[in-house]
Amino acid sequence: MTFRVILAIAALAAVAGCSSPVYRGSVASFGDATQAAAQAQTKRLSTLSDSQISDIRGDLAQNGVLLAYAPECALLAVPGSSIDDCKVVRRDGAPIDNPESFASIAALNKAMGEYGANLAALAADASEDGAAFNTSLTNLAVSVEGLSAALGGAGTKDQFEAVGAAFGGIGTATFAGARTSKLREIIVAVDPQIQQATALLSAASEALTLSEVTTSLQRVERAERALASAYANNASTRDVQRLQDRLFDEVAALKRSAAARDAYANIGQTHAKLAKASRDRASKEDLQGSIVELSKLVKLLSESADPF
């Protein structure tokens, strides 16, 4: 994905004198980068949830907690039984801790990814079929509705009215100018919601980095203690080398976690730049500014594309 976006930005710079294709290309590149950022954030949330599950189960084992399956599991063959009631339980009756679900952030992140994907699709739509264009428009409207729902309906009445008006269809218009005008209108109207969403997701990203670094540091410390214990107990050279390799690997993982960068702050800034270019009818100077911002965003995503 990153390589494609870089090529798109290079192409945009080469045709900067033609405002409509450059504008649509800028928007498409932004959409691709936003979708990539959302996918990366989803992976981080999933990794954190898996880590919490591992820690909870490790504590149960270390504390010698006796486990069993719930009696409801035996009833699953009976029609109408609830699958959710079949689970592992503690024999002492105490509840088993659950990992945090991060449901609201996950939903907002998913909505941002869908917005990026559908925005890119709409910007890249070169079809002369007005019905096909309106289908792309509808898909983008659905993703914006999902974004609003994930934000909990945050926004003023004027903002909602502006967004609704922006998504009015353009009938069977086939001219690229009419479609580009509609794209500009949508980006301007949706920008307040994008700014709210990216601010929340940026804060979540920073919290994720703190959690990842803390967890990774704990693993480094465990690896160091294991190596020290091996030395103290005159372990074989092979075992010592294995534990040394583990310590090297854990320190490298710690550095990768600490190097993770928040893409969402940059996404918010870039969308604001696109909104400004949209209001100003996408002047050459504003488009070049957008391309510069997109270049920064692509570099940022490239640096943190695989932090684990």
Results as ranks from 00 to 15, higher is better:
T214D: 15
V188M: 10
L210G: 11
V27N: 00
A282H: 06
L247A: 07
F133K: 00
A126D: 15
E250G: 00
Y23R: 03
E161V: 11
N118D: 06
Q195H: 08
Q35W: 10
E206C: 03
A14Y: 03
S54H: 13
A14C: 02
A207P: 05
E185V: 01
A11R: 13
K273M: 12
T180G: 02
A10C: 09
A223P: 04
E145Q: 15
P307T: 12
E100Q: 15
I194Q: 02
A258E: 11
S143M: 03
L227M: 03
R57Q: 15
E285Y: 08
E100T: 13
I194K: 00
L301W: 07
L151E: 00
S229C: 07
Q39P: 05
K110G: 06
L147C: 04
D286I: 09
A166Y: 00
F308D: 15
F308T: 15
T237R: 12
L140T: 01
K273H: 09
V190Y: 00
I53P: 08
I53G: 09
A131I: 06
T198Y: 04
A282S: 14
M112V: 05
R57H: 13
V298Q: 12
L247I: 04
A226E: 10
I83F: 14
R179D: 03
R179G: 02
S181T: 10
A259Y: 08
P21A: 00
A154T: 04
I194W: 03
